[in-house]
Nucleic acid binder design. Structure first.
Lengths: 229, 229
DNA sequence: TTACGCCTTATGTCTATATCTTTTGAGAAA
DNA sequence: TTTCTCAAAAGATATAGACATAAGGCGTAA
């Protein structure tokens, strides 16, 4: 077969990184590139589309394609289920339900999850262990108005995250990462000192506009979220 | 025109999210789908390729395409330059160089950056302010063996990050996020209390296998990294 | 000078067809 | 029964040609 779109992409990227195509400069159009590579325009198109997708180049109809002055640095972050995360570390995963209770939503949560006045929530507290040591503390609230079957479900064996993923798999979500100081309770659960700086993720999940769940995931001391790009 | 790949993608996604195509079930092959949508196979291919890219479906040659049991949750994280980050918040950006000195690499850094015995580094300490308030503390080391021109450069007006991006734009990098406790120095810079939990990013950057720079970015108290998916 | 509108151009997308590659599963051989 | 080999299936990708769409820029009118 003739030249592949991967080869075209690699060659263009080489020209860019080696300075043959300077940042800010405009590139030849697809027709000319196709001619010079001796391939079809669609092949060049796919190569350039992916480079644009990677944030290396910028494309505009009629204006043409140019090398970005400041390439967009982006990473793809996979959000794993904690059990998988731990098993990928090569550690044994254990889950424990600490506490589970249906209750009226407290005011701060009502506001945060945009719940109605009388909505009830299922409040779950769980722990996730890697090789017996505390790994993550999970504090979760599930909107019982949106997901009444959660109240009947027994969360002592499988975690709420896994249950939710299999029950309402295709949801919208917002995730945020930040640092928190361990309070006495969390310090106890995660076997660290009160006041320790801990990495925490918060996630809110919606299905068709309705808030399904809000969760705070607090990681053991020293946890890092690492990515390549 | 006939049906677009976006419409095919949207329709397939609708079928998946509404349960017409259950998680784990296999989808019709490209030829059949193209026939049923009344479009070319390439159109269906692009739609399905993007769905696979989004982690919704799983494709394997000969085995066919199936809806993922556990859809991969992934987000794209843009790594902005701090100045842009602050200006996008609608705040005024100010940069200050606190300290800059060329020195032999300390042992811990030599190990971390994989430097040779006698390599020297440029150690820069900078502050980034949003509307006059401390936003981010930057502690950076630049490998002078790889980038000798850094020693001659004056970093009092533009930050090292911006200079590096314009000098060696296309690099490989690893970034990691975690939580740290503020020590006395950082607390002073970021106007917080010693012991406060702070969000920190560490980034190591390579160009063609050679370590260029290592940086620790410590954010003001309460900083959050937020993403939608 | 300024504003509007058309023309041209580069990218975006679709079609129809063909070939390549990977992988599964069936059948043959041990 | 187990292992090996091979053909078929399905996705991956290439091609040539066509039309769609956005937008830069020029010409004309106000």
């Amino acid at each position: 077969m003739s030249i592949t779109y991967r080869e075209v992409k690699a060659d263009l990227l080489r020209q860019i990184t080696q300075g043959e195509l300077a940042p800010g400069s405009s590139m030849p159009n697809e027709v000319d590139l196709a001619a010079s590579y001796g391939c079809a325009r669609a092949t060049v198109n796919r190569a350039m589309r992916e480079l644009a997708d990677d944030g290396i180049i910028e494309r505009r109809r009629k204006a043409g394609t140019r090398v970005r002055l400041n390439p967009i640095r982006q990473v793809r972050l996979n959000i794993p289920i904690v059990g998988q995360e731990i098993e990928e570390l090569g550690a044994a995963y254990r889950y424990a339900l600490v506490h589970g209770q249906a209750e009226p939503a407290p005011n701060w949560l009502r506001a945060r999850m945009a719940l109605k006045r009388d909505d009830r929530v299922l409040h779950l507290t769980c722990m996730h262990y890697a090789d017996g040591a505390p790994y993550q503390h999970e504090d979760r609230w599930i909107n019982l108005d949106a997901l009444p079957e959660a109240e009947q479900h027994d969360f002592s064996d499988i975690g709420p995250n896994e249950w939710l993923v299999s029950t309402v798999p295709f949801t919208e979500a917002q995730i945020s990462f930040h640092a928190v100081q361990a309070d006495a309770t969390i310090a106890d659960y995660l076997d660290c000192t009160e006041g320790d700086a801990l990495f925490q993720a918060e996630r809110m999940t919606w299905l068709e506009g309705q808030t399904i769940t809000f969760v705070q995931l607090t990681y053991r001391r020293g946890h890092r979220l690492t990515m390549q790009y």
